[in-house]
Design a protein around this nucleic acid. Sequence first.
RNA 1: GGGCACGUGGCGGAAUUGGUAUACGCGCCGGUCUUAGGAACCGGUUCCUUACGGAUUGAGAGUUCGAGUCUCUCCGUGCCCACCA
Length: 979
Amino acid sequence: MKKYDHKKIEKKWQGEWERSHIYKTGAPAAKKPKFYILDMFPYPSGEGLHVGHPKGYIATDIVSRMKRMQGYNVLHPMGFDAFGLPAENYALKTKTNPRIAVAKNVKRYKKQLEIIGFDYDWSREVNTTDPKYYKWTQWIFLKLLEKGLAYESYEPINWCPSCKTGLANEDVVDGRCERCNTPVEKKPMRQWVLRITKYADRLLEDLDAKESDVPLIKRTIGSDKVRADLPFQERHAIVSIVKHWSEDKYLCSRYKKNDWQGFITGGVEEGEDIGKTAVREVAEESGYESARFVRTFGRVDSQFYHEVKNVNRFAHFTGVYLELADGKRNEPAEEEKALADVVWLSKEEVGKFLNREDMKYLWDLFTGKKKQEGEKPLLEWPESIKEAQRNWIGRSEGAEINFSLKVGGKERSEKLTVFTTRPDTLFGVTYVVVAPEHAFVTELLKHKENLKNHDDVVKYVASARVMTEIERTDAKKDKTGVKLEGVAAVNPANGEEVPVYVADYVLADYGTGAVMAVPAHDERDYAFAKRFGLKIVEVVLGGDVSKEAYIGSGKLANSGEFSGSDSESSKKAITKSVGGEWVVKYKLKDWVFSRQRYWGEPIPVLHDGTAVIPVSEKDLPVELPNVKSYEPTGTGESPLAGIAKWVNVKVGRGKDAKIVKRETNTMPQWAGSSWYYLRFMDPKNPKKLVDPKAEKYWNQVDFYVGGAEHATRHLIYARFWHKFLYDIGAISTKEPFKKLQSVGLIMGEDGRKMSKRFGNVVNPDDIVSVYGADTLRVYEMFMGPFDQAIAWSTSGIVGSRRFLERVWNMREKVASNETEEASFPKQADVLLNKTIKKVSEDMAALRHNTAVSSLMILSNEFEKAPSVPRAAYEALLKLLAPLAPHMAEELWRSLGNKKSIHVSTWPKADESKLVEESVTIVVQVNGKVRGSFEASKNAAKDDLEKAALGLDEVKKWTEGKEIRKIIVVPGKLVSIVVS
RNA sequence: GGGCACGUGGCGGAAUUGGUAUACGCGCCGGUCUUAGGAACCGGUUCCUUACGGAUUGAGAGUUCGAGUCUCUCCGUGCCCACCA
């Protein structure tokens, strides 16, 4: 065998794999199980890749290759997210058309990826800047608009004066523009906003949902068309299995209008529990009055309503078991009789009678033939990412309480509503604060006579408006504010009049924009009160609500309303007592969706001066035109506004013809990436975003790998769009990414982030050239736990290279005859089987570091043997194939194999060889290891105890001492306690 | 200030449910080969101790026959969020 020449073999096999299309994803087919593994697609910046970028791609490539060998139809695609500021700024800097720059960068990225030897099916490549792609991004926008989830707003938004564009809340980090670090300003302007807050509760709840909370059976009989003219609804419902009063017979229902045969079903109405619903439905549909609720037995979700009642409903059915006390029966309602017949059937007959998957499934649950599935979590995500999303969504419950207002001593009709999580401190309120942007302030300032210090207030409000986010939200700065002279608020708990202040420490866009200040129990209020010399009143003693204060006030009838020590229910009781409302608030804000920049998807609407006219679907895509200057205008309009020819559109014919203007704002970078994973399922479809058949087959992304920095942007936006697409029936799953894993950064050798600025960037091309792609792959995986940030070490990489060379040189030791084969030690064979098991498990869980380690141990063991049987060597190569695809292929073919190792069958561990009959038993005396001995795996406790006490090393420590206790763990250890 | 994660040799890091801590790799030390250097290969390598032995998973406590692993307190590091009422 020649020396290991990585340059030659890597080039050779990359060419060969491309020619033979071995990585082409199969068409949706039921024959093979599917596996969809996805990397977060990159945006192709001008800088190219450094060694940190491919880390995640290598990890998914390994899983993808293993799954392929395990017989899965693998979807492992790659594409480019090329709209947005980075690409545009790069284009501006280099004075090239972004289209040209993007094409160039994409080409470079692909080349860099190719030399690492990934198994991407490039025939499915998507690019968010391709009109054929963004046609569907625009289509989704139109749907959002149609459903009232996209709206125009004129509220002040975050504005980056350097990028000259509005930003979403998510794009602002510490008050600065996430891209260019410029302090963000507040600027009122017209903008498009997506109502993501409407999904806040679902985005939150599904983080902790179980699989059983989503539809278990997705099959529908007949048409699977969702009626776009009807709203989509979900509801709770029941399926009742009713047993006859004396015989072993069950009540079934046969629909007259279609072939639907099952049990009595019905929706749970308001105020009902499941048992009540079942009894009522049975009485209505069958006429039997005396049904008794016995128990529930499981659940299934089905589109029953969709089919029978022709509405868009996805019902979550709970199975309810009922027994009839007697045969008392009324005539069922005429309406029900027309719809269905009821019949009594024996257990055997029921099995045959049922003709629907969902009903059969419930029957199997009832008879015990099947067990309820789906108790696994809906999302297998790292807890840290889930937690980041929970914090971002920021749900909090509290009270909205109305304070009456007096201006110039006169009571006003409108009230000031404050939001508080601590209504129990209502008696400690000494003033009320409103945000400078609050509508009440604006209203008040309209009439000079309202305020004695009108001019001061105007000044303060104006100064708050021009401050940057950083200046305003710096927690360290002294609290500022101004009193509304002549205005008082009335505390609804005790009728006390308190002053009202305007202060910028109250945020306009959280809660109601007004707070009741309790300086004794809130740090911020305390700081403000100290500064302005305001009263401080304590109400809470030792953390408990001072009940007497409330009871004494006469607002609460008796202490019983506190419901014991439950602080939440007492808070609710207090809220109620002052006429307030218990509400849920979220920190999550609606998604500012328009950018005043060139390089993005045009928002597909027209303006006729008064109204917004959506571009009709057939006119999509609205293509991004070429312009002379890409420079942002800074006026709140995008450079597109300068192209009269594009902006002015003639609509209508003849007399009705008129000129309308195109929307010139574009979409943010996050638009295209919010749904790209769906397009990979069916990347070329000109008629649909994704074909339902392909969508049902590929279902969800099984495994998604990428940077944790996307926790609160990409991953929330994508979940939002996905849920929306689910609601309009475009897709069939509730969540886009089943399992998620985040990649840890690769730092520079100096421990700092890899950056041109620090001069610590390592280019993968150089590493591939010197050590080979296979070595790079093995090393990056071997470095440490996948999700951890670890510093690059070029000296450490030689260990991975040496390991590969050892496997390469082992080729000469492959046995050529039976005698040689027989010389292979048994323990090496046992280790091989153990390693097969471990590597399979480790790779599936992205524990590639320990997979590599166990392969090293295995090859060290093989090296000790005089020769290695071909089968054993081939198994080693197969295990190595995902990690070092080129070398494994070369060695595999050198053994005479004709087909690629990457389409061979993954080895299976021989379970019988995993069981060792002899094990080492450790003996501890007073917790310290004093000896060990070999024993049969199934040795009895008594024998182990005897053997342990008989050991010389053990005797030494037990002699002359009283043995107090002996603990024997069979197959593991004997622990002796002496006094 | 809040949340989450983590803390193991000179370094990167291993350690199913509590059951022989330091696997694997780097580095280092010694050896073989070589004119030499390097490469490759072989052996050694947690610390203290000549040894017997002892100590050791950030510190301290607890539960247990037994704790890197579970509980509590503290210290430190990293990430995310933050005038969110």
